[in-house]
Design a protein around this nucleic acid. Structure first.
Length: 260
DNA sequence: ATGGTCGACATTCGA
């Protein structure tokens, strides 16, 4: 099975590019983030015409997560147990959807941005990650042999080499130690990030602003965490940098793993 | 010299 994750930054703007990627890359299961639409606005018919079932969760123009699959799609779950809320009145955001595709439990995740270290959104981000770790640890405790993939836009650059210039990120989110610790804590829960061994150095995101892509000033913030049983069957990974090129690209590119 | 964006929606916010 070929599994990919991609922050598409509006599915309505990007649907043609996403379908072209699915066709060209041989991807069986695609987790998407930042669809930026409600369920009734999602272009489901276009995916179905291409042979993919889709589960989408979107509440407004913000966030929105989905999974498209041509190898089955079952047990749709909106949000994970204990997922923190945001806003006034407090409400769950559309940042997590879980589905089972050919025996693999796939979670499409859009981790809160954090905005700044002083912003309440930053604390929300850390709480969100801690709750995810607790939930995911619980899934593995219940079934140590489960094949689980936690994929998406983590909004964390775990290593200094995951940004083009650390001096630009002094006092910024995405690189702070608490965020990196929260990312590593998934390992304590039994998960392993499985793309870096196959792709040691490659960004997954380049800001639209300030010619970041032409200058290759990017960030690696999109990752795949795999449970032990799944990690044992991952035989390859790729980051499709070329998807940042051409007409109307997303600011993120697809991250792909191959499961044997 | 030094800034250069994009998307949804409403004329601003989020990234």
């Amino acid at each position: 099975m070929r599994l990919a994750t991609w922050n598409v930054n509006s599915i309505r703007t990007r649907v043609d590019r996403v379908l072209a990627f699915l066709e060209g890359s041989g991807t069986d299961v695609l987790a998407m983030q930042e669809t930026k639409c409600r369920d009734d606005q999602f272009p489901a018919l276009a995916f179905e015409a291409a042979g993919y079932e889709v589960a989408h969760h979107g509440l407004s123009q913000w966030n929105g997560v989905a999974v498209a699959s041509r190898v089955g799609l079952e047990e749709i779950e909106i949000g994970f147990p204990g997922m923190p809320t945001w806003g006034e009145p407090a409400a769950a955001e559309a940042r997590a959807i879980g589905v089972t595709c050919d025996g693999v439990r796939v979670w499409s995740l859009y981790v809160p941005n954090g905005r700044t270290l002083e912003d309440p959104h930053y604390r929300y981000k850390l709480e969100w990650l801690a709750a995810l770790r607790a939930a995911a640890g619980g899934w593995l405790a219940a079934d140590p042999d489960a094949e689980v993939a936690l994929v998406g836009d983590w909004n964390i650059a775990p290593l200094d080499t995951d940004v083009w210039d650390m001096s630009v990120f002094e006092g910024a989110t995405h690189v702070s130690e608490p965020e990196r610790a929260a990312f590593r804590a998934l390992e304590d829960a039994g998960f392993a990030e499985v793309t870096r061994t196959f792709v040691p150095q490659q960004y997954t995101y380049w800001d639209y602003q300030r010619l970041r892509f032409p200058r290759n000033e990017g960030m690696r913030i999109d990752f795949v965490h795999a449970s032990p049983e799944l990690a044992a069957h991952v035989v390859g990974a790729a980051i499709h940098r070329d998807e940042r090129k051409g007409k109307a690209p997303s600011d993120h590119v697809p991250v792909v793993i191959d499961i044997e």
